[in-house]
Nucleic acid binder design. Structure first.
Length: 500
RNA sequence: GUCCCCAUCGUCUAGCCCGGUCAGGACACCAGCCUUUCAAGCUGGAGACACGGGUUCAAAUCCCGUUGGGGACACCA
């Protein structure tokens, strides 16, 4: 039996550093056993999935140096590798479960479910989840209602009592009482599968032998185990990796840390250093070496050496690693990496039209454009505060723009401009009044190159990071939104900006 | 709240499975050396077995409990 592992990202946002981390271990495990590593796109959430995001994920994983044997771009014998192109498969499989009585149609409205949930919350119920309202319906009744065109979902029939024993490669067996598991939706109203169904069907059909994924999945593993059993399939071996954490130990999140791989790319972290560093998270080579290549890791890889404490993603140490790799390069090599990174003709030709009207000496150019290549700017906090009505107001405006940037999927000058036009309109402030703050936040000075174009050159992730840096600088001076104030501001923002 | 997972320097970790070396390394920090400065480099320093009970001649290591942290509880993955 050849080992086959997979990474199954969902294309619903910026490529996440955690995806690369999980992918790395899947890759290392498969390759160390002479097996295959597969990339599958889990785009069953058709509302949130985008083609841009899918592309960004593939690009990022490629950038970091991970290559898959099968995937949507390279093809393979078990394709298609995009779940949206496999809908028929899930429906067939799901209906076979219904016929066998292992799943059932449910006609409950989302209103009823919402009510149920808030009731459970209010009662502080021990069990939160579906109450099995439709589970006892006769097959006749159900098919009648389906024929009548009523919308429905298909739910998995989960045992009422007893416990599910899950084998985890990295832990002892995990026992979860069945009454903690609710009748999971398998097929949504739109006919698309949920993660649980699609994942199990695909892992089986793609002959995945080892499911190496994040710890967040432990509690839904019983559903997956039950599905394998219902289909009469042998389950793969499960290994749940500890989650990457923020410095405050919570699960790594973009609110508290840059999580997008493309940010690290823009910031000039070397991909081999990032990969090396990720290999140090929850893992160590048997010989204790800290600097290693992907091949080094593969050749000595031992999944059982994973340590289970959730590692904090420490950017300082990542920078140190990047520095080691950089310093080891010959100047020629360094120069070519610099060009590859972005210090090249293409970039300069984008910058020059912006800089030209402002030039007196050629030498002006370097200072003028330095911020486009920087990571963290040396902020003068008083400038940040003075560029707005007050420190508090600066924080609010930066926050709004942060949220608005996150919402955009396109990143051309017009898209950027639109963000600020909206802000100007909603906040009833002229752009001239509004923009100084953002000049300082993005460029480090209220006098700079045209900011919308500059933002496009820097890229969305770097812009987001600059806001974070500016917010940090303001927080050091005591200007911050947190706790209840943040909550109140967030809902006010949503009411104001999210008009549908 | 309920269920589940986890627990060695501030951080990443070695050691744990198979009890017995001053608990080892790396980042960060501090000091010295080198150096026109800084960085890098080199040398040194400070810094951890969460707590309480067992088992044992002996516990970071095995067992139980407590505490702490984290995750999950969606027609998201």
């Amino acid at each position: 039996m050849t080992v086959r592992t997979r990474i199954a990202p969902s294309p619903t946002g910026a490529p996440h550093i955690g995806t690369a981390y999980i992918a790395l271990f899947n890759y290392a495990f498969a390759k160390s056993h002479g097996g295959q590593f597969i990339l599958r796109i889990e785009d069953t959430d058709h509302v949130r999935s985008t083609a841009e995001s899918e592309k960004a994920i593939l690009d990022s994983l490629n950038w970091i140096g991970l290559q898959w044997d099968e995937g949507p771009d390279v093809g393979g014998p078990k394709g298609p590798y995009r779940q949206s192109e496999r809908s028929g498969l899930y429906q067939e499989h799901c209906m076979s479960l219904v016929e066998a009585g292992k799943a059932y149609p449910c006609f409950c409205s989302s209103e009823r479910l919402k009510e149920l949930r808030s009731q459970q919350m209010a009662d502080k119920a021990q069990f939160m989840g579906y109450d099995g309202h439709c589970s006892g319906m006769s097959a006749d009744d159900a098919s009648k209602r389906m024929e009548n065109g009523e919308s429905y979902v298909i739910r998995l029939r989960v045992p009422q009592d007893g416990e599910c024993v899950v084998q985890d490669r990295l832990r002892d067996e995990i026992r979860i009482p069945w009454n903690m598991v609710d009748d999971q939706i398998l097929l949504k109203t739109d006919g698309f599968p949920t993660y649980h169904l699609a994942n199990v069907v695909d892992d089986h059909l793609m002959e995945i032998t080892h499911v190496i994924r994040g710890e967040e999945w432990i509690s839904s593993t019983p559903k997956h185990a039950l599905l394998y059993e219902a289909f009469g399939w042998d389950p793969p071996e499960f290994a749940h990796l500890p989650l990457l954490r923020n410095p405050d130990k919570s699960k790594l999140s973009k609110r508290k840390n840059p999580t997008s791989i493309s940010y690290y790319q823009r910031a000039g972290i070397l991909p081999e250093a990032l990969l090396n560093f990720l290999g140090l998270m929850a893992y160590s080579l048997p010989d204790g070496r800290e600097e290693f290549t992907l091949n080094d890791m593969v050749s000595s890889f031992d999944l059982d050496r994973i340590s289970l404490g959730g590692p904090i993603f420490d950017i300082e140490k990542l920078k140190d690693f990047s520095g080691r790799y950089l310093r080891a390069m010959e100047p020629e090599q360094l120069y070519s990496r610099l060009k590859e990174w972005g210090l090249n003709e293409t970039t300069w030709l984008k910058i020059l039209p912006l800089a030209r009207p402002r030039l007196e000496q050629l030498s002006d150019l370097v200072e003028m454009s330095a911020f486009l290549f920087s990571d963290r700017l040396a902020y003068d906090v008083s400038e940040l505060i003075n560029a707005s009505e007050s420190g508090e107001r600066a924080v609010e405006l930066l926050r709004i723009v942060q949220w608005e940037i996150e919402k955009t999927t396109c990143w051309q000058t017009d898209d950027v401009k639109q963000i600020f036009s909206l802000l100007s309109e909603k906040e009833d402030l002229k752009l001239k009044k509004l923009m100084p703050l953002f000049f300082v936040a993005f460029a480090g000075s209220s006098v700079s190159l045209p900011i919308f174009d500059s933002m496009v050159i820097m890229g969305k992730d770097m812009c987001l990071r600059r806001i974070q840096y500016a917010l940090e600088a303001l927080a050091e001076e005591g200007f911050a939104l947190k706790g209840k104030g943040l909550k109140r501001f967030t809902s006010a923002y949503q009411a104001k900006y999210n008009k549908v």
